[in-house]
């Protein structure tokens, strides 16, 4: 299985690597948009990569503010920017790369490095991180696994990053999501998630039943009467007489008492009369004319 993922990742990496390297050599300045999941934008200056932005990895701003290092000095700022750039490159390489295009007239990234990194070195590092992830006993991808804590553990005996992962792993969040929430780079979070999965602290549960909550489970007693004037009275039943609806095989939730989307009768609340849109529009225009009239 790792082989299949590897070959897929490799094709994306090769595409990206040749595109960025060639652009850096031939043009030197500009930006490339990498399409794919998560994809991103690679900014170049003088043939060097000075910033990489990706929805798959927290930017320098997130890394600084969320981790409480907002008062960073120039040296630390440079380190954080470099780290964020390498992390975004990793996120792009670890995901799916579909293609790339040259961005016309790109905006200068506010967090560009003064002196960048060669495209070859940057992408090689990203590929190495991905390879390191793949040799772990339970390899994960930053945007794929959504694990849950597997066992009750004493959080106090764990390292800070492990604690944060166990606290934020809710079966909905990927390593990328947790990285954003905690203000950490996505690579270390992904590695730690893989370790915790390997160690049995986290587990990936196949979610056969969607976690989507339908309020039908909690009968909204106070809200239901509002649908009565429009819904057929027969269709509205109390939770008690759910017996005459055949039990659904696919959904574990009790049968929906209102099979149709509740509809409000337009104007039922009286808000339209109260606010009187026609008059309101007229008076708003009048106000505008008055203002421009006095200004002259």
């Amino acid at each position: 299985m790792a082989g299949v993922r590897d070959s897929l990742g490799r094709a994306g990496y090769d595409l990206l690597s040749s595109a960025v390297t060639r652009y850096a050599r031939e043009k030197g300045d500009g930006a490339l948009r990498v399409s794919g999941t998560p994809g991103g934008v690679v900014h170049l200056r003088g043939g060097l990569v000075v910033a990489v932005a990706s929805p798959g990895a927290p930017g320098p701003g997130t890394l600084l503010t969320r981790s409480g290092r907002s008062g960073a000095g120039a040296a630390e700022l440079r380190v954080v920017r470099m780290m964020a750039m390498q992390d975004a490159a990793f996120a792009i390489v670890a995901g799916r790369v579909d293609g790339w295009e040259v961005l016309e007239d790109p905006a200068d990234p506010p967090d560009a490095l003064g002196v960048g990194e060669t495209p070859g070195r940057l992408l090689h590092q990203a590929a190495r991180k991905l390879a390191a992830l793949d040799v772990l006993p339970h390899p994960v991808r930053p945007d794929r696994e959504r694990p849950l804590p597997a066992v009750e553990v004493d959080l106090a005996q764990l390292a800070l990053l492990q604690r944060e992962l166990l606290v934020h792993a809710d079966g909905r969040s990927t390593a990328r999501d947790i990285a954003f929430r905690t203000g950490r780079a996505v690579y270390p979070v992904t590695v730690e998630m893989a370790r915790l999965l390997g160690g049995g602290y986290l587990e990936c549960v196949e979610t056969a039943a969607p976690p989507v909550r339908m309020p039908a489970r909690v009968p909204p007693e106070s809200l239901r009467p509002r649908t009565r004037p429009v819904a057929e009275p027969a269709a509205v039943s109390t939770p008690g007489d759910a017996g005459d609806v055949p039990p659904s095989a696919s959904s574990p939730s009790p049968p929906d008492p209102a099979p149709e989307l509740p509809r409000r009768t337009p104007g039922a609340s009286g808000i339209t009369e109260t606010l009187a849109p026609q008059k309101a529009v007229a008076s708003w225009k009048g106000f505008f004319r008055l203002r421009s009239g006095t200004a002259k």
């Binding site: 989507v212 909550r213 339908m214 309020p215 909204p220 809200l223 509002r226 649908t227 989307l261 509740p262 509809r263 409000r264 609340s269």
Partner: peptide, 9 residues
């Protein structure tokens, strides 16, 4: 629903 009655979350 448009009036704020939750359908699914």
């Amino acid at each position: 629903a448009a009036d704020g009655l939750l359908i699914a979350a």
